[in-house]
Amino acid sequence: MSDLFEILLTAGFWAATIRIVSPLIFGTLGELICERAGVLNLGIEGIMTVGAMSGWMWVYQGGGLWGGVLFAAAMGALFGLLHAAFTVQLGLSQHVTGIGITLFASALSYFVYRMLLPLATTPPKIEPFDEVAIPGLSDLPIIGEALFNQSPLTYLALLAVPVVWYVLHRTPLGLAVRMAGENPVAVEAQGINVLAVRTGAVVVGSALMAVGGAFITMSWFDAFYFGMINGRGWICVALVIFASWQPGKALAGAFIFAGLEALQVRAQVLAGGFIPYQFFLMLPYIMSILAMIVMARKTKYPQALLVPFRRGERV
């Protein structure tokens, strides 16, 4: 047990936590925005794969890192638009569309990767984002190195949380988004186009998810592997429920989750031989299920989540 506490005091643990949390923050915020507007986006797993592949590929083909992030975001937005066209404009099943998007987007990513790099047996690498130290703060013991000497994408993730919170809770636009997910008829009565608001939310949310995917190939690792997202998208969907659709709680949830995962990797070394590694790898998925159970009684789903809106149709 004392070994576990010692882990908590190492800078490596905190650095790993921050690395794991960054894509989760992007993905969770993205999903949260979609669901707040009333659209469940199960395309997240595939959209993160698209982001991971396209951002990496942009850089590999000679583009800049930030250009790659933008390209990943644009690709994510494109798949978000597809999702919105089906679920918002046509009012089709959000569950099935989302799964379809995930199947299509992941397969397309793999196809494009193989097409452009047909002979690559070992995945080729790019020069990923460098850490940027924030002067002064990065000299703090333990957390200084972890929190303030990070990839710029991590800072972007941490910055996105208050921005999303502010826009959702303090601006008329955010009010429209949240109302579109609670009472679309009332939004329409205010002369605001529900379909446009929902479509916009899904597009923006999907772009964020894709940036989360891009973080994995452009900052965490330096290559693209098959099956690299490995359920992270689904974990984000669980985290949104755990966070009761609040950006602040989403950040907290993502941190708890990432911390446990980082701890798990280190505990694996400690318990090596006693407990098979597969059981440690199961933990993130089991924790996500537990997180949903814990919050189940308290969750207040957006009232119009999963409910398509058709203008002039009585609910």
Binding site: G46, L82, F86, V96, T97, I99, G100, I101, T102, L103, F104, A105, S106, A107, L108, Y110, F111, R114, M115, P118
Partner: peptide, 14 residues
């Protein structure tokens, strides 16, 4: 690439 089959599966769902 064989992934064309997976693309076809995804597209046919949509």
């Amino acid at each position: 690439p064989t992934y064309i089959a997976d693309v076809l599966v995804g597209v046919s769902v949509l």
